[in-house]
Amino acid sequence: MNSATREAFGAALVELGAMNPDVVSLDADLAGATKSAGFKKAFPERFFDMGIAEADMVSTAAGLASAGKIPFASSFSVFIVDRALDQVRNSVCYPRLNVKLVGSHAGPSCGEDGGTHQAMEDIAVMRSLPEMCVVVPADDVEARAAVLAAAEYDGPMYLRVARLASPTVYNADSYSFDLLHGDIICDGDDLTIVACGMMVGRALEAADLLADQGIRATVVNMHTIKPIDAELLEECARKTGHIITVEEASVVGGLGSAVCEVLAERYPVPVRRIGVPDVFGRSGEGSQMLDYYRLNKEHIVEVAHEMLGR
């Protein structure tokens, strides 16, 4: 409950390891931080320390996958996405190998490590690669479900998890994760808030505030940004006519862009993107950083008012 999605990833990986002997894990000297360390402890013979060598780690994972393993390669998002991009592209996506890339400490919520460590562009970059599936779980419950679903899905996947703990949105007992479909969490006719990751919780808070003011918002958790649930987006656009996207990632190429691409062609309605502007991050406590970039309920409410003219 209310734990970071990286914690849930680590625990789910151990669960998965017990169920499926083909699951293996690799890390680049950040197992303690990404939480793959739990798997290392439980299944030492199936865990591979790859040293601080992300390029080698990703191509090695590709080789493992080519021989039938289901490798989860983890590191900080900025290193596995950016440092190893050529390997992700040519060793994993081009041959469509069954490699799961787990990028933790993504986004400004990464916090104090600052600009070098806060991947803002990871969603955009991973989304641009053919064959890649991009998943950003909303909370610990969904992160666990997404890890289990990743092992069932045959193909390259990028799973974005966060360092910062965030409120649990879903009920662990009743939630069922559907990889290819976004999840409508609350329903309203006035506007739609499409969010991913820990912004889903904040979108729900904003929807509550708006409800108090008589504005009824639909909130969609778009956990899978590629392939994106275009049908659902069109349905929401038709129903509410106004869309706000919220992500703790760059507005350049991320969830907001993906939503705009779909709606521009299928059912154009006004869209406002809330996210990190086109800048590098900076040091600060994780939740403070979210407020610094105005990734909070107050800002979502403000944008809703602007959009609706009330």
Binding site: V24, E45, R46, F48, A55, D56, M57, V58, S59, T60, A61, A62, G63, L64, A65, S66, A67, G68, K69, P71, D86, Q87, R89, N90, S91, Y94, P95
Partner: peptide, 25 residues
């Protein structure tokens, strides 16, 4: 063809991965 290649420098890593899988199995 056992592995896609063309971007130089990646093949030995992939070969290592295949060998690790073989050892596990």
């Amino acid at each position: 063809v056992d592995m896609s290649t063309g971007s130089l420098g990646q093949g030995l890593s992939a070969a290592n991965g295949m060998a690790l899988a073989g050892r596990l199995d």
